[in-house]
Amino acid sequence: MARISAAERRRDFINAAVDVIAIYGIDGATTRRIAEHAQANLAMLHYCYDSKEDLFADVYKFVAGRFSDVVKDSDPHTTLADTAGQLLRGVMQCYLESANFTAATLELISWARRQHEDRGIAVYDEAIETVRDALRGAASEQPVDRETIDQIAYIIGTLSDGFALSWLTYGDRSAAMAQMDVVASVLESWLAARLGSAPVTV
């Protein structure tokens, strides 16, 4: 049997932690449960991670990385409006692909706020800033002011978060796919109105 590297094991534990957090919440996400879900023994988990906090730090990085991947997968050669639409659909698709990822993401951010820690805020801030960067790149062909970029990023975050909550609450994939079109149309309508009067940068 091929030996599994420590890096591969860490990935297994991160994925398992996401699932366990989604099912049991942060407080119920014990290292024993995570190890069992990863089909590994507890000693291996403690070999890869000095503490539960170290593992959770990697889980936060994983969540932030998923949002960064959405931006990387967007087409950089489109208009600002098209880029915004791609980003919104990409984030919603990311949520739709895994209810556990959705539940764990919301739980991690809420838990961090309850603990007065900034990790949850940092993940959210990093995701929004990544979206801003992509929008700024698209705006090079259609320059708009910073406030408009911030507003578009905020709306993408707000609409995708609302979609995530609805998807997580009802768990109806076919309904969620139809709702993606509705949510995207809300952004499109706002963009059509806003960009038509957006101040141009000088």
Rank of each mutant, 00 (worst) to 15 (best):
Y47P: 00
S51P: 03
K52Y: 00
E53Y: 06
E53S: 13
D54F: 08
D54H: 13
D54A: 14
L55M: 09
L55D: 07
F56P: 03
F56Y: 09
D58V: 01
D58G: 00
Y60A: 09
K61E: 09
K61W: 00
F62S: 10
V63C: 01
G65T: 09
G65P: 09
G65I: 11
R66Q: 12
R66I: 02
F67H: 06
D69R: 13
D69H: 09
V70H: 04
V70F: 08
V70I: 06
K72D: 13
K72A: 14
S74I: 03
D75Q: 11
D75L: 11
P76N: 03
H77Y: 14
T78N: 05
T79P: 03
T79R: 11
T79F: 05
L80P: 01
L80D: 00
D82W: 02
D82M: 11
A84V: 09
L88A: 08
L88M: 08
G90T: 04
Q93W: 03
Y95G: 04
Y95F: 13
A99K: 13
A99R: 15
A99V: 10
N100E: 13
T102N: 11
T102L: 12
A103M: 12
A104W: 02
L106G: 14
L106A: 12
L106V: 06
L108Y: 04
L108M: 12
S110R: 14
W111K: 11
W111R: 14
A112W: 01
A112M: 03
R113H: 12
R113G: 04
R114Q: 14
Q115I: 01
H116F: 03
D118I: 08
D118P: 00
D118Y: 01
R119Y: 08
R119V: 10
R119T: 14
G120K: 09
G120M: 01
A122G: 02
V123P: 00
V123I: 10
Y124V: 15
Y124Q: 11
D125G: 11
E126L: 13
I128Q: 13
I128Y: 03
E129R: 11
E129L: 10
T130Q: 13
V131E: 00
V131C: 11
R132Y: 04
R132M: 14
D133S: 06
A134R: 06
A134P: 02
A134D: 02
L135Q: 04
L135T: 10
R136L: 12
G137E: 12
G137R: 14
A138M: 04
A139S: 15
Q142G: 03
Q142I: 01
Q142M: 12
P143G: 12
D145C: 11
R146E: 15
I149P: 03
I149M: 07
D150E: 15
Q151T: 15
I152E: 02
A153E: 05
Y154M: 15
I155H: 08
I155D: 12
G157F: 02
G157M: 05
L159V: 04
S160M: 06
D161V: 12
D161A: 15
G162R: 10
F163E: 02
A164N: 08
A164K: 14
L165I: 15
S166V: 12
S166P: 00
L168E: 05
L168I: 05
T169K: 14
Y170H: 15
Y170K: 10
Y170L: 07
G171M: 07
G171C: 05
D172P: 03
R173Y: 02
R173Q: 10
S174I: 07
S174C: 10
S174H: 09
A175H: 10
M177W: 00
Q179L: 13
Q179C: 03
